[in-house]
Every structure is written in structure tokens, then in C-alpha cells.
Amino acid sequence: MNVLLSRLDEQQRRWFVALEAQRFGWGGASLMAKITGLSRPTIQRGQRELAAGLAQCSTERVRAPGGGRPPREAQDPELLTALEALLAPETAGDPMGRRAKAKRSSLQQLSDALSAAGHPVSRTTVARLLRQLGYSPKVNARRAEARSSPAERDAQFQHIAEQRAQFAAAGDPIISVDTKKKGAGR
């Protein structure tokens, strides 16, 4: 029975189990709930729909329109702006735009910072928003290297961020240069 139920949509599953529960008579809904894992209220809803001749049930949609929770950015229109503001000083990536942009903060750090700023959001939502903004949700591979670097490294990033802000305010171009270290003997 459960193999058959796995092939049916929500309505069909509810109606089939409701028919079987009616066939058992008193206690049938409880028995079918144990067998199938459907809740008794779901089975009873199916019984009511069958008793009404399925008159209120749509033949085109399985679920009612407008169901589900709206996305977090629809609930909080300033969320994307706040996330972009957090990412601005730490964004790195391909200047030609061929690959996703990278960031230094983890999903948890971004989630915590947004929550502290009055925009409560989960890590999975942050990951989805990062993909939407063209970022890789994964932590930059150089993050471990940045942790073991001296404390002056953060000061360097702050200085670069200030310089970028000054150039942007003056309308001057900002050039990003990505260099690679070459090991000895190469």
C-alpha cells in the first residue's frame, strides 16, 4: 500500500487512505494513520472531501494558490541592502566576472551580523541570497591562511577599504589587482 501511496499526489493519497479508512469502519482512520503515516486530521479531511463528492477540490492544482511562507527578502525589503553593505569591504573575485565573487566571512558570521543589525536570517537563506548576488556561498579557500596571518593583515584590508571608499566618492576608477606568490625554485 505504501509503495502505491508514494506514487500518488497529496490529494490522491488523502482520498485513497480515506476510502480505506471508511472500509474498515470505526477506528479505520487511526489504523490507516498507523499504517501510512498520514495524520488522522488529513484522513478525516479526505473523508469530508469524498462525502462532498470532491466538489470543492480543484482538478488543476494540488495545492491552493498563494500557499507557503514568503521569502525572507520579501518580508524584510532592506535585507539585501544590509547584506551587500556587509560584503562590500571584504569582496574579492574575478574582475572580469567569469567566476563567482568570494567573501571572507562564513555563512554563520554573516547570519549573526545580519541578525545583530535587526535582520534575523538563517545560514541557508544567506547562502541563497549570496548566490542571487553572484557570490560563492562557500568560504574563500584562503580564509585559513588569513586566520594564521599577522594581526596587521586586517589593518591592511581596512586601509584598502577606506581607499576604495575615497576613490568611489571622488568618482575615480578602482582597479583590483590579484597577484599570486611564486614558490622558490619555480
Results as ranks from 00 to 15, higher is better:
Val3Asp: 14
Leu4Lys: 09
Arg7Leu: 11
Glu10Trp: 15
Gln11Trp: 03
Arg13His: 05
Phe16His: 09
Phe16Asp: 02
Leu19Lys: 09
Glu20Asn: 05
Glu20Pro: 00
Arg23Gln: 09
Phe24Gly: 10
Gly25Arg: 01
Lys34Asp: 15
Gly37Phe: 02
Leu38Trp: 01
Pro41Phe: 10
Pro41Glu: 09
Thr42Leu: 10
Gln44Glu: 12
Gln47Val: 14
Arg48Gln: 15
Arg48Cys: 09
Ala52Met: 10
Gly53Tyr: 15
Leu54Asn: 08
Ala55His: 10
Cys57Pro: 00
Thr59Val: 12
Thr59Asn: 07
Thr59Cys: 06
Arg63Asp: 11
Gly68Ala: 06
Gly68Trp: 04
Arg69Val: 15
Arg72Ile: 14
Arg72Phe: 01
Pro77Trp: 03
Thr81Asp: 11
Thr81Glu: 12
Leu86Tyr: 04
Ala88Phe: 11
Pro89Asp: 03
Ala92Asp: 06
Gly97Leu: 02
Gly97Arg: 01
Lys101Leu: 13
Ala102Met: 14
Ala102Val: 13
Ala102Ile: 14
Lys103Val: 08
Lys103Thr: 11
Ser105Phe: 04
Ser106Leu: 07
Gln108His: 07
Gln108Val: 07
Gln109Trp: 00
Ser111Val: 02
Asp112Phe: 00
Asp112Met: 05
Ala113Arg: 04
Ser115Ala: 13
His119Gly: 00
His119Asp: 02
Pro120Tyr: 11
Pro120Asn: 11
Thr124Ser: 12
Thr125Cys: 08
Ala127Asn: 02
Ala127Glu: 06
Leu130Pro: 00
Leu130Ser: 00
Gln132Tyr: 09
Leu133Gly: 03
Ser136Thr: 04
Asn140Leu: 07
Asn140Gly: 06
Arg142His: 15
Arg147Ile: 08
Ser149Asn: 10
Ala151Glu: 13
Ala151Met: 06
Arg153Leu: 12
Ala155Phe: 06
Gln156Thr: 12
Gln156Cys: 10
Gln156Asp: 14
Ala161Pro: 00
Gln163Met: 08
Phe167Trp: 05
Phe167Asp: 06
Pro173Glu: 03
Ile174Ser: 11
Ser176Cys: 12
Val177Asn: 06
Asp178Ser: 11
Lys182Leu: 11
Ala184Asn: 14
Ala184Trp: 15
